[in-house]
Structure formats: structure tokens, C-alpha cells
Simulated assay, not measured.
Amino acid sequence: MNLQRLRGLIRKEFIQILRDPSAIAIAFFMPVFLLFLFGYGVSLDAKHVPVAVVVDQPTAETSAFVGGLQQSRYFEPQIYTSMHSARQALMARKADGILWLRSDFSRQILRGNTASIGVLINGVDANNARILEGYMQGIWQNWLQQRAFNAGAPLIIPVNGEDRIWFNPALRSRDYLVPGLIAVIMTLIGALLTALVVAREWERGTMEALMATPVTMSEILLGKLIPYFIMGMGGMLLSVALAVWLFTVPLVGSFWVLLACSALFLLTALGMGLLISSVARNQFVAGQIAIIVTFLPAFILSGFIFDIQSMPAAIRIITHIVAARYFVSILQTIFLAGDVWPIILWNSLALLLMAAFFLGVTLRRSHKRLD
């Protein structure tokens, strides 16, 4: 390998990037756009949920309970006079649930008996239904505790649980989703950076002129890899900065460990892009392959949104060949839990093997010929 030729190829690549700034848009503008789009658009939190409230016989107790519901940031209660109208609102998707306080609610409470509330939840979205059910139980439990405290009597519960939430005490789904989102975005960007620009050179004929020079294939591949690696790391740093300062996701672990793991993952993504460019020498085809092979598996099979352990066994096996799976685990660990070395080292080793595989296969497939 001739270092002087390699420096010339790298310089030529940066000049080409400045003349055709589409790569800059992919490396820097696309992460910002996708982070804004998914960071604000994707959420597993349920807030300001419309709930139909039916009170058969208004009393001081029912007013106190509905008042607690109105003060919650999770619900937007809408008062209905009958269960029939509330059911119609639920069918029309004007409400996601119904809270029914029957006519004997206050009487049972005053007698010291167990009073029950009726809760009907729209189960079309099963995840949202489970969240609403938990919120309803929490509101009911808090009201009982507050009522017992005001009466100066203990609230007798057979089991008193003390919850302690580690790593994400605020229970913000954004703190969990944004690190995984960075991995999904960098998978797409890393593959597109090399796949599209190399395919563009084949289309324009500049790759044929490059093959007529004394440079070797390893020098050509390194000349492509190094500039886009630098740009990809710049895009990665921008994504991390947005996650910490804009989305206020805590970075508990070491920034340098995050940087090293990101470099490993970016090499894997760039290697996938180079391999795609060696197969497809057309920009449109290369772009379609990059989206299908990198973005969709990273979005669905990486654990970014869907829990891998809940998938069928056959699908869980397939997830082991998705590079984003390992990077999502690393990012969520470093951001929320810190430097948990068993997780970081195991997943980093997997990324190192995948980077070596993709770059090795690309080098083996690349030859200085036009066929």
C-alpha cells in the first residue's frame, strides 16, 4: 500500500464531497431530521388520554374522585350523563376508556364496605390499553390513600409494595427510545454514505478512470472508507448532542466508551454499504437495497421498539445477524445504566466480527476489472 496514493484518494474524496454535498446532507441533515421526526413522533407514554366519566349519583365522594382524575396529567375526563352515551363516545373513538361510578359508590364507601368502580378500556391498541389500566389503578389507589389520610385512619391493604425503578426513574419512554433511534438512524446513514456515492461513481464513469490508475483495490476501498467514516462519526456526535441537550436523555456512562463503540458500529454500517455498492452499481438500486437490508431490520428486529425476548424463537435467531441489535443494547446501557462491561464487551465483540466480515467480503469481491 502506498500512503502517498492513499492520501491523494482521500483528498480527492473530500473534494468530491464538497462539490456534490449530497453526502453532507446524508451525514448531518438526515440524522437531525429523523431524530426530530421519530424523537417527537414516537412515544410509548400515554398522556392527556380522553376518558368518559359516568356518575350515576353525584356526591362529595364522587366529586373528590373525579377531581383527582382531572388533576392528573394522564387523563382528560369528559363527563357523560349515561353509560349509553359514554359507550357511543368509546365506539366513535372520542374516548379511550370509560370510568363508571355506580349509584351505590358513596353508600358503600360511607359504610366502610368495599366499593367498586367500573372501568372499560378500548383494547384495539393492546399496549395502550395496558398502560391505561395501570394508570386507572394508580389513580384509584392514590385516592384511597388520600381519603384514609384525611380521615386519620390507616388504609388496610394485604400487601404493601415499595417500588424502586432503576435506570429510568422518570419512566420516560423517550429516554429509552432515543438511544435506540440513534442506532437505527446510523445504520441507514452509514450504509447510504458508501452505497450511494460508490454507485454514483460507477454511473458517471469516474470509477472506470480510477481503475486505470496504479492504485490497488485496498487503497480505493480505504480511500472511500476513511472520509465517510469521519463524516459518519460527525453525524454520530451530532445525534448524541441532540439526544443529551435537546431530548434531555441522561448520559450516565463514559463518553469515550460510547465513542469507541460507535466507531465499531459505523465500520460495520460502512462495510455493509461498500458490499451493497459492489453488488448494485446503480444509485436507485443501491438505495433500495440499503433501506431493505439495513433500515427495516434495524427498526423492527433490533429491540429498538419491539422486545426481542417476546418474539418467536425463529425470529430471535434472525436478530443475531442484525448489527443494530448489538448497538442498541450498547447505547441504551451506556446512556441509562452506565458502563456495564459484560454487556458492552460482548456486543462490541459481535460488532467487531461483523465489521471484519463485511469489509473482508467486500475486499474479496472487489477487483480491478469492469465486469
Score class of each variant (00 low, 15 high):
208 E>R: 15
197 V>D: 02
235 G>H: 02
243 A>M: 01
220 I>P: 03
211 M>G: 01
241 A>D: 07
205 G>I: 10
259 L>G: 05
210 L>N: 02
240 V>F: 02
210 L>H: 05
214 P>N: 13
248 T>H: 15
203 E>A: 04
217 M>V: 14
253 G>W: 03
212 A>I: 09
240 V>R: 01
211 M>L: 15
259 L>V: 13
253 G>V: 01
226 I>L: 15
213 T>V: 11
193 L>Q: 05
237 L>F: 12
209 A>R: 14
206 T>I: 10
259 L>T: 12
220 I>R: 03
247 F>Y: 14
226 I>F: 14
260 A>M: 13
228 Y>M: 11
255 F>G: 05
227 P>E: 11
243 A>Y: 03
245 W>D: 12
230 I>H: 10
227 P>A: 13
214 P>E: 13
238 L>I: 09
235 G>C: 06
240 V>M: 04
241 A>K: 06
236 M>R: 06
250 P>M: 11
254 S>N: 15
224 K>P: 03
252 V>R: 12
260 A>H: 07
211 M>P: 00
216 T>I: 10
253 G>K: 04
218 S>Q: 14
215 V>W: 06
198 V>P: 02
241 A>R: 02
255 F>E: 04
248 T>Y: 14
235 G>E: 04
219 E>V: 09
249 V>L: 03
238 L>M: 12
201 E>S: 06
227 P>N: 14
239 S>E: 01
254 S>K: 11
209 A>T: 11
225 L>A: 10
226 I>P: 05
254 S>T: 12
247 F>C: 07
229 F>I: 08
244 V>M: 12
222 L>P: 06
224 K>D: 07
223 G>S: 10
257 V>I: 15
254 S>E: 11
198 V>E: 04
199 A>W: 09
208 E>D: 13
260 A>N: 08
249 V>S: 00
193 L>E: 05
219 E>Q: 14
258 L>G: 00
255 F>V: 08
204 R>I: 10
256 W>V: 15
227 P>Q: 13
247 F>T: 05
211 M>R: 04
237 L>Q: 06
213 T>E: 08
235 G>Q: 04
230 I>L: 15
243 A>E: 00
209 A>C: 07
254 S>Q: 12
193 L>Y: 07
256 W>L: 15
206 T>R: 10
251 L>F: 07
200 R>F: 08
231 M>F: 09
255 F>L: 14
251 L>Q: 05
240 V>A: 00
193 L>H: 06
212 A>K: 09
239 S>I: 00
232 G>P: 06
204 R>M: 10
199 A>N: 09
193 L>P: 06
244 V>E: 09
201 E>C: 01
228 Y>G: 03
258 L>T: 00
208 E>S: 11
223 G>C: 08
260 A>V: 15
253 G>A: 06
203 E>L: 05
232 G>L: 01
250 P>F: 08
240 V>L: 00
203 E>S: 02
195 A>C: 09
208 E>P: 03
214 P>K: 13
202 W>N: 04
211 M>D: 01
233 M>D: 09
211 M>W: 03
253 G>D: 02
242 L>R: 01
232 G>W: 00
218 S>A: 13
248 T>A: 15
202 W>Q: 06
218 S>D: 14
243 A>S: 09
199 A>E: 08
220 I>H: 02
257 V>F: 08
226 I>T: 12
232 G>K: 01
256 W>K: 09
